[in-house]
Amino acid sequence: MEVAACKRSLSRRASSSSFRLRSPSLNSVRLRRVFDIFDKNHDGMITVQEIHHALARLGLETDLCHLESTIESFINPANIGLTYDGFVALHQSLDQTFFGLDLEEEDESDLTEAFKVFDEDGDGFISAQELQAVLWKLGLPEGKEIGRVEQMICSVDQNHDGRVDFFEFKHMMQSVLVRTS
């Protein structure tokens, strides 16, 4: 049933899904949503602790000192955290570093680690249920609606099997990010 729904969904939206994933204005909206999710106290800034907490909820253990040293150059000295503009600059820097035009082996390794966050059962695929669980952990409203999650899966499911494999995930990651070059 999931595969049939995916095929129907894709046939209706095939021409728009590519635009949706590559549209800089929509990526900007998505980036703003991520910022707002990380900004738990809604003060217009994301502290290193808020980022650390969000990563921990995803099961990504980070060294707080290392995270702070990575982010501190994007924080205005007069602020206690990243403003939205600083967050965008950080995102662009990470985009350039990890998702440049040529993926190096170490970048592929980073993508593999990111994929594993979503592939909770380790079967090599991201199912709608696994994506929903991660979205739920992040506190995203999509985590409550399996139908919306299935649409998200369908938007990147190139072989129409109702789940996302590593190559589809890699293609999605390369397509979604706003190029900085």
Rank of each mutant, 00 (worst) to 15 (best):
I126E: 05
D102E: 08
S127Y: 03
E108C: 04
D85I: 00
M152F: 12
V176G: 03
E145H: 11
S109Q: 13
H66T: 12
V164T: 02
Q132F: 06
L21D: 06
R13E: 15
L138W: 05
E142S: 02
L90S: 02
E120K: 15
L26D: 02
R33E: 11
V117L: 11
H66R: 15
V134C: 04
T47L: 02
T112V: 07
S181D: 14
Q92I: 03
F118R: 05
R163P: 04
L10R: 15
E50N: 05
E50R: 00
P24V: 05
M1Q: 14
G81Q: 03
K137C: 09
E113P: 06
E105Q: 13
L101C: 07
K137I: 03
I80A: 12
V48I: 09
D63V: 05
C65Y: 12
R57E: 13
V149M: 10
G162M: 06
I153H: 07
E108H: 08
L131Q: 05
E108A: 03
Q129M: 05
E113A: 10
V48H: 00
I80C: 12
D63N: 11
F118C: 06
F74K: 09
H160E: 13
S9D: 12
L94P: 00
E104G: 04
M45L: 11
V178G: 07
G124Y: 07
R163T: 03
E113C: 05
T180K: 12
L67N: 07
G162K: 06
Y84D: 10
G44M: 04
K7A: 08
S18R: 15
G124R: 05
H160R: 14
A5Y: 13
E2W: 09
S17C: 14
H160Y: 15
I75Q: 07
T97Q: 11
P77C: 08
S127F: 00
N41Y: 02
Q96N: 09
E72I: 11
E113F: 09
L94Y: 02
A133T: 08
G124D: 02
G44C: 06
D123R: 03
A78P: 04
E150M: 11
G143I: 05
G124M: 07
L111M: 10
S73F: 14
G86Q: 11
D43A: 08
I126P: 03
C65D: 14
H160D: 13
C6T: 12
T97L: 12
S175Y: 00
G81Y: 04
N41F: 09
M173G: 06
H66M: 09
W136A: 03
